[in-house]
């Protein structure tokens, strides 16, 4: 590695007294003092959340109100701190979405373990799990910090859907085999 020795310029007398430097420093801080404040009054004022922000993971429904999660458990598998726990279940054959066959019976995310990495969202083949803009979670007990399925859907709400994969599938089923 090549390097260059830089001669340190000897301090002038004024500099050695510190006084001009101190005054210029005080000028800086005084300017800062009369400027508008940069911090937010947090709980009342909140920062704008940019798109793609990774907040609390939530479960979402499609615009038709169908729960998108099919409990494939890929998120449970990929979750580095093992915060997700899914109990898979079967959709009863008489349900409207029976053609989807599978849905989570229980879905728990332990927010004490979650590290907000977003791998669950990335891995989800159904785009059912989203890290949305809630960033502050608190609770009095450990149990309170485990979001169950009901809470996850409350947090998640409904997001727009680009695919309607299962609705298309149902339509195809109703139309029958195109050969016939």
């Amino acid at each position: 590695m090549s390097f260059k020795t830089v001669e340190r310029r000897p301090l002038s007398l004024a500099e050695r007294t510190y006084v001009p430097q101190i005054l210029s420093g005080m000028k800086t801080t005084f300017k800062k003092m009369v400027k508008p404040k940069e911090t937010l009054n947090y709980p009342e004022a909140r920062p704008p959340i940019p798109p793609g922000y990774r907040g609390v993971p939530t479960l979402v429904k499609d615009p038709n109100g169908r729960e998108k999660c099919v409990s494939c458990q890929l998120c449970e598998f990929v979750c580095p701190p093992k915060a997700i726990r899914i109990t898979p279940g079967e959709i009863p054959p008489d349900a409207e979405t029976a053609h989807v066959e599978k849905a989570p019976e229980e879905f728990e995310i332990d927010m004490l373990r979650c590290i907000y990495c977003g791998l669950c969202q990335e891995v989800c083949p159904e785009e059912a799990i989203w890290l949305q803009n809630v960033f502050s979670v608190s609770g009095y007990t450990r149990e309170e910090m485990v979001n169950d399925k009901k809470r996850l859907y409350e947090l998640g709400g409904t997001l727009p859907d680009d695919h309607y994969k299962w609705d298309k599938k149902k339509a195809a089923e109703e139309a029958g085999n195109p050969h016939h």
Partner: peptide
């Protein structure tokens, strides 16, 4: 790009 076959499921 055509429609997939539909066959009995379950």
């Amino acid at each position: 790009i055509e429609q997939k076959n539909v066959k009995p499921k379950r």
